[in-house]
Amino acid sequence: MLDADWTDANVLKVLGDRYRLDAYHVFPLRCSDSTAVAWHVECADASTVLVTQYLARDELPAARRALGMSEFCRAAELSVPRVRPDRDGDLLCTLPDEGTLHGTCSVVDADHGAGGLRPYTRDQAEHMGLALGRMHQVLAGYPLPSQEPVGAERAWAVLCAADAVAAHEAASVQIVARGAAARHVALALQQIRRYLSTHLAELRGAVPAPKDLTAHAIHGQFMPPYVQAATGLPVVSGFLARTGYVAWEVARAAFNPRTVAQGQDWQVRALALLYSYHKAHEHFPVAELAACPRLAALDMLCTPVSSAAPAEWERHVVALRRLLDALPELDEALRHLFSAPRRTV
């Protein structure tokens, strides 16, 4: 069941009535998710909050888990925006169906600004590695959101080539319907099919089996725009609160397709993130960190591009090609990195 979108006036009323916030300026945000709508709202106390209305009621348990994990990390003094409770102390504010205005929302501090989508620098990569290492230490003791990894968190380990191709093709149909150029998507699909047929089995054979990888509660999308790393310690938002393989999340952060595809020093940035993670979480198995380049490649092979922008599909393929070509070089660099005395990358 989907609730109706609120108007700007509805948002202001909810903030006043349920959060005791004197707000005056509402900026609707463009959302790619049809199950939620969001606004940035300026308040009279000079603060800015992000208001998210959840339209799909079956998504509310996941939203509650994500907000709870966010507050758990903030309580552990990680750099995470505050989730504001409503007047009843609930992180999810639900208006009764019998009222003239109904629905469910959350309110989160947004004074840190929006996360950028530019490739991160080496310094930012180091800060991201430190932040992710500290976060994983905190989340190691967090209740599991699910009994085992599901969805994208395990697709890299279980999808056969045919099923991975089918997933990419299904995503391509959806994004072409949303306006993507069919020619650009077809070219990307051709490359992905070829890489799946030539590399999937080899990559899986070179990484630890899933049963041998560390798994616990993870953020779920620790990458831009949910990591704001413009200055100093990154501000982390956008929690999905999933059960997942820790090295998988590290790999996706270190070898983010945008960073790998753009610029010539992407390997330096990736190694900086991995080494900083190792410094922050020194008891995490080095063998799992050494598997990150291949885990990232497996993730790119098995996770479809969701954007309708042709540049995203091209970037995905370029990143995958660069990463596959660089695996021997990265293996040598990681062997040296983790065997040498601690130093700056």
Rank of each mutant, 00 (worst) to 15 (best):
V305C: 15
Y275W: 07
L324Q: 06
A290D: 07
A311N: 12
P293N: 06
M300Y: 14
D325W: 02
A287H: 08
L324V: 06
A290T: 02
R294V: 02
C292S: 13
R322I: 09
A308R: 14
L324R: 04
S276A: 15
H316R: 02
D299N: 14
S307P: 12
A290N: 03
V317S: 11
L327I: 13
V318F: 03
C292Y: 03
H281R: 15
E288I: 06
A319Y: 03
C302A: 13
S276P: 03
C302E: 03
R321A: 05
W313H: 09
P304Q: 11
R315E: 12
H281W: 01
S306A: 15
L327D: 03
L274M: 15
L323H: 00
L320R: 00
A319D: 02
P285Y: 15
A308Y: 11
H283F: 05
F284D: 08
A308L: 07
Y275H: 15
A297P: 05
A309Q: 11
A308I: 01
V286K: 10
C292L: 00
A308H: 13
L289H: 05
E314L: 14
A309E: 07
F284S: 12
W313T: 06
A280L: 12
R315I: 07
A290I: 05
P293K: 09
A308N: 11
C292G: 11
S276F: 04
E312S: 15
L274A: 09
T303R: 11
E312A: 13
D325N: 12
S306I: 07
A326G: 00
L320Q: 04
A297I: 00
H278I: 02
V305K: 01
P304C: 11
L295K: 01
E288L: 13
S307F: 09
S307A: 15
C292K: 08
R294C: 07
Y277I: 10
L273E: 12
V305D: 13
S276H: 13
L301W: 04
L273D: 10
L298T: 00
E314M: 10
L295A: 08
V318A: 14
F284W: 08
V318D: 14
L289E: 04
V286A: 06
M300S: 06
D325T: 04
E282Y: 12
E312Y: 02
V305E: 15
A319R: 09
P285V: 08
H278Q: 15
F284K: 09
A311Q: 14
L289Y: 03
T303E: 14
D325K: 10
T303F: 12
P304S: 11
V318R: 01
A287V: 08
A319F: 04
L324K: 05
P293V: 06
A309W: 08
R315K: 10
Y277D: 08
S306F: 09
S307I: 14
H281S: 15
H283I: 14
E314N: 09
A296N: 09
T303Y: 14
P310M: 08
A311F: 11
A296Q: 05
L301S: 12
P293A: 03
V286I: 14
P310F: 10
L298W: 01
A291I: 09
A291L: 10
A280W: 08
A296W: 02
P310N: 07
R315F: 01
A291P: 02
V305Q: 08
L323Y: 11
L273M: 15
E312W: 06
W313I: 00
A311P: 09
A297H: 02
C302H: 03
A309G: 05
Y277V: 04
L323R: 04
R294M: 07
H316S: 08
